[in-house]
Amino acid sequence: MLIPSLLLLVASASPAAPAEGALRLSWADEILTVRGPDLPGESLDIWYIEAFCRPGSTDRDWAETVITHRTELIGSGPDGRSLRLRSTLEDGVVVDHEITAGSDRVDFLVTATNPTDRPSMAHWAQPCIRVDRFTGVPPERNSEQYLPKSFVFIDGEPRRLPTEPWATEARYTPGQVWCPKHVPRTDVNPRPLSDLVPSSGLIGCYSADESKILATAWEPYQELFQGIIVCLHSDFRIGGLAPGESKQIRGVLYLVEADLDRLLDRYRADFPEHGDDPDRGE
Results as ranks from 00 to 15, higher is better:
A122T: 10
R133C: 00
N189D: 14
F134S: 02
V137G: 06
E140D: 13
T168C: 01
D132H: 14
F153R: 03
T173K: 13
A170C: 10
S120I: 02
G156M: 04
N189G: 09
A170F: 10
T113C: 11
V183K: 10
P138W: 00
Q176T: 08
H182F: 11
P148S: 09
C128N: 12
T168Y: 05
N142T: 11
A125T: 08
Q145F: 06
V177S: 05
Q176H: 09
T116W: 11
I154Y: 05
P165Q: 05
A125K: 06
W166Y: 14
I154G: 08
K181T: 14
D187T: 06
D117N: 15
P138S: 03
P190L: 03
Y146T: 02
G156T: 01
D117R: 15
Q126W: 10
I129M: 02
P184L: 09
P127D: 00
S150G: 13
P180Y: 11
R185M: 06
P138L: 00
R159F: 00
R171C: 08
P162Y: 06
P158E: 03
S150C: 11
A170H: 11
L161F: 12
F153Y: 14
V137H: 07
Y172G: 07
R159N: 04
R133I: 00
F151D: 04
R171Q: 13
K149D: 14
H182Y: 07
M121Q: 15
D155L: 01
R159H: 13
T135H: 02
F134L: 00
F153M: 05
M121R: 15
P158F: 00
E140R: 07
P162D: 08
C179S: 12
T135W: 02
F151N: 03
D155H: 11
R159C: 07
E144G: 14
D155C: 00
F151M: 00
T116E: 13
R133G: 03
V137W: 01
P180C: 06
D132A: 13
A125N: 12
T116N: 14
R171W: 14
K181E: 13
P180R: 04
E140Y: 03
A167C: 09
P119V: 03
W124E: 03
G175V: 08
P115A: 08
P138V: 01
H182K: 00
R130C: 03
P180A: 04
I129T: 12
T116A: 14
T113W: 13
M121A: 15
D132K: 00
S143H: 06
T116K: 13
T116C: 12
P190G: 09
F153L: 08
C128Q: 09
D155R: 07
V183F: 09
V183I: 14
P165A: 07
R133K: 10
I129S: 11
H123E: 09
C128L: 12
W124P: 05
N114A: 08
G136D: 04
P138T: 01
S143C: 10
T168G: 05
L161P: 11
P148E: 05
R171I: 11
Q176C: 11
P174H: 09
L147Y: 15
T168A: 07
A170I: 05
N189I: 00
Q145L: 15
E140V: 11
G156A: 05
Y172S: 10
Q126A: 12
C128V: 13
T135Q: 03
D132Q: 05
R130S: 05
L161I: 01
P139G: 03
G136Q: 04
F151L: 00
P162N: 05
R185A: 08
K181L: 12
P165W: 05
E144V: 12
N114V: 07
